[in-house]
Amino acid sequence: MKKEISELLPFYVNGSLQGEDLEAVKKALSQDKALRDECAFLENLRDEVQNQTHESSPGQLGLKRLQRDLAKEQTTRSRRLPQNDNIKNKVWRIAAVAACIMLLVQTAYVVPLWQNNKDLVAASGGNAAYIRGPVLSVTFVPEAREENIRELLLAVDARIIDGPSSLGVYKLAVSKNPEAVIAKLQAHKNLVETVQRDGGESSGK
């Protein structure tokens, strides 16, 4: 019981004890001189602790330091959050405008080139575009093989420029002497079924 009271004494001395605790301590003090001495000791101790105030605290300097740290922290935060986003947005906006201008310039430069057609080559080789001269209509026998047709056409320097049609007619352009070519083609009866010269000439594509 005495230890319990003794543990409560400091709080009796600082005036924070209330209710049953306070009553118990008051009663014990009235009956026990040792407790009263201890109470006096604690009061002295408390006075001494209270007198420590001469120890200087950071005061105004501490506040300045705090305000400086606070400003630093706020700057860092604002850099990290909204301002940073604004900078990013600005950069992206400039980049987007630059990309649009580049696209416009490129389009203005390339489109006229397309219209000239001079530099365009068909993926297949594009030679047909430039073939000029007489045109022959040819049909091949059903048994004719592609490799044999290819060899024959290369031999007579003829090129397929159209077809086959639904009836199996191919248009051939020949570069020189169509009659001789017709004769050569007709000589290959195992490949060529019919051959005739068309009315007009190929004018190129």
Partner: peptide
Amino acid sequence: VMQLAFFEDLPYSE
């Protein structure tokens, strides 16, 4: 604890 009890005069609960 002593500082809080004797300088701040706080109750033990606090």
